[in-house]
Design a protein around this nucleic acid. Structure first.
Lengths: 136, 136
DNA sequence: ACGCTTTTGGTACTTTAGTATGAGCCTGTT
DNA sequence: AACAGGCTCATACTAAAGTACCAAAAGCGT
């Protein structure tokens, strides 16, 4: 947020400068009005596109990537997180057990601990909560 | 894609027109150069922002929003889709039943049909498949 | 070596989920 | 009117999922 304001401010300031310079350099010679107009148009068009892309990019960061900090905060162990990922892929406990080369018992234990730590009652709810926490 | 090209083309054309008009109306009276420059700058800035937002919005449709066409293609009924949404929210069959004012039996029927149509074995897998199909 | 956490595994049991099948009710279409 | 599709509900299962409790082996920092 602070960065956006700073960048926007300095950009506006420098554009104002350019604006003033071009205005004064025009006094007396009105045969290049078209050129100046075109330049101004292109510059502001590019600035518009650039600023917009930046702001949208910032928004996207709030939607996409995973948050490693919260995994620690929730005290999720490596194995528990692995199981969580497999659950979100739609696998059953047995399938996860085969994938990770352990027994179904072990997976059940992990899942139970997982549900407690995520404060979920079902694995589907765990998926939903994990995605809200940007853990998945 | 076609729409984007059309809109972009017509916008460019009309802007060219405005550009020409403003140019000719300026001949002889160079005391309003600043105003015209400002207007051109603002207009192109807005156009830049708008066009950029549009193109990014189109990209986002490939990531975010739901695809109503595929829901029809899969022959999912209204009720089945409602149940699918509730499942993805992490609710149990009983909870969904209470929410939709029907019995758990009904929800089970819907879920069963849902799994067949989505070619899933479990509700968690249904969520995963539905999200890949951009149904959720 | 000792304490601590993680990972693993088991038994026994309860609760959800999911399948199969059949059936009644409503609604829009032919 | 007849028919198809969608929604509802029930019974009777089977199969997963989840809980509770316990316990041994492994890994790790002090």
């Amino acid at each position: 947020m602070k960065k956006t304001i700073l960048i926007f401010g300095s950009l506006a300031f420098s554009l104002l400068l350019l604006f003033q310079i071009s205005k004064y350099s025009l006094i007396g010679k009105d045969f290049e009005i078209e050129g100046v107009l075109a330049i101004v148009a292109v510059v502001f068009f590019i600035v518009g596109v650039y600023l917009n892309k930046r702001s949208l990019h910032t928004e996207k960061r709030l939607e996409g990537e995973i948050d490693l900090e919260k995994i620690k905060a929730l005290e999720l162990s490596k194995r528990e997180y692995e199981v969580l990922v497999e659950i979100s892929m739609g696998y059953s406990n047995k399938e996860i057990a085969d994938k990770l080369f352990v027994t179904e018992s072990t997976i059940k234990t992990h899942v139970s601990n997982l549900l407690v730590k995520l404060n979920a009652k079902r694995r589907t709810q765990a998926i939903q909560i994990a995605k809200e926490l940007r853990i998945l």
